[in-house]
Structure formats: structure tokens, C-alpha cells
Simulated scan of single mutants.
Amino acid sequence: MTNLAFPKKLRLLTCNDFFFVFKKPQCVYSSQIIIFGRINKLKYPRIGLTIAKKYVKLAHERNRIKRLIRENFRLNKYRLPSMDFIVVAKKGIASLENGILLKKLEKLWLRHYQLFHRH
């Protein structure tokens, strides 16, 4: 049975974790989301989020977006390569409905999967 938990080890927590990804990232993006990824030496994927107040003014909207991204990552982690991912929200993400945001994330995870398996 697949373990769908979301323990702390699956999160990017330190500045060094984020700097590692931003040094040489693979990027996939849509008009409202960018996902940077970099292969890690662990046997599992990890995720970090950046949702700027500049693009999502209200705290409850930022929390909604973060919750949806984390949940989507949690459900897809078994399909993702062993990479560190940083999801960056862009202008217009707050206006997306939950279902549309989840569909965009699914497409972006799939693109990362395809890029990883091309190499």
C-alpha cells in the first residue's frame, strides 16, 4: 500500500535547501505557477513554496493556495522523481478556482516527470 503521509522530511525548510534548487533548476511553468526542480541525493521528492504577498494579498488566499499545492504534492509524491521542488506563485493565481489550480499542478508535475525520464 502506498504511504500518502506528508512528514516534515518532505519539505524544504532551510535557506540552503532553497539555494540548492535555485542554483541549477529545471523549470516548468504555466501563466500562474512555476515549479523549479533539481535532482537530490535522497530517495524521495521534497517541496518548498513561495507565495508572495505582492501577488496574493489576502492571507486566507495564500493559505488556500499553499494547502492545495501541498495536498496535490502529497498525492503525487509516489510518481515524482527524487527531486527538490520549489513552487512559485505568480500573478493571477489567487483568481484560479481550486479545480483549475489542481489541474495545472497535475500537468506541471507530469512535465517534471517527463523531463526527468528524458535524461
Rank of each mutant, 00 (worst) to 15 (best):
L58D: 10
L58F: 13
L58E: 13
L58A: 12
A59R: 03
A59I: 02
H60T: 14
H60R: 06
H60M: 01
E61Q: 15
E61D: 15
R62C: 08
R62F: 10
N63H: 13
N63F: 01
N63R: 05
N63P: 01
R64E: 08
R64N: 08
R64I: 02
R67E: 10
R67I: 07
L68F: 05
L68W: 08
L68T: 13
I69F: 04
I69Q: 04
R70D: 03
R70S: 08
E71G: 02
N72I: 00
N72P: 00
N72G: 04
F73P: 04
R74V: 11
R74F: 10
L75H: 12
N76D: 03
N76L: 01
N76P: 00
N76T: 04
N76R: 07
K77S: 11
K77F: 12
Y78G: 01
Y78R: 02
Y78L: 07
Y78E: 09
R79H: 11
R79V: 00
R79M: 01
L80R: 06
L80D: 09
L80G: 12
L80E: 09
S82K: 03
S82N: 14
M83E: 14
M83A: 12
D84G: 12
D84V: 09
D84S: 10
D84N: 15
D84M: 07
F85N: 09
F85P: 01
F85M: 15
V87A: 14
V88K: 07
A89P: 03
A89V: 04
A89T: 08
A89Q: 02
K90C: 06
K90P: 10
K91M: 06
K91Y: 14
K91H: 14
K91P: 03
G92W: 10
I93N: 08
I93G: 09
A94S: 15
S95F: 11
L96P: 04
L96R: 06
L96K: 11
E97W: 01
E97F: 06
E97V: 07
N98I: 03
N98T: 14
N98G: 09
N98V: 02
N98W: 02
N98L: 00
G99M: 00
G99D: 09
G99Y: 05
I100K: 15
I100W: 05
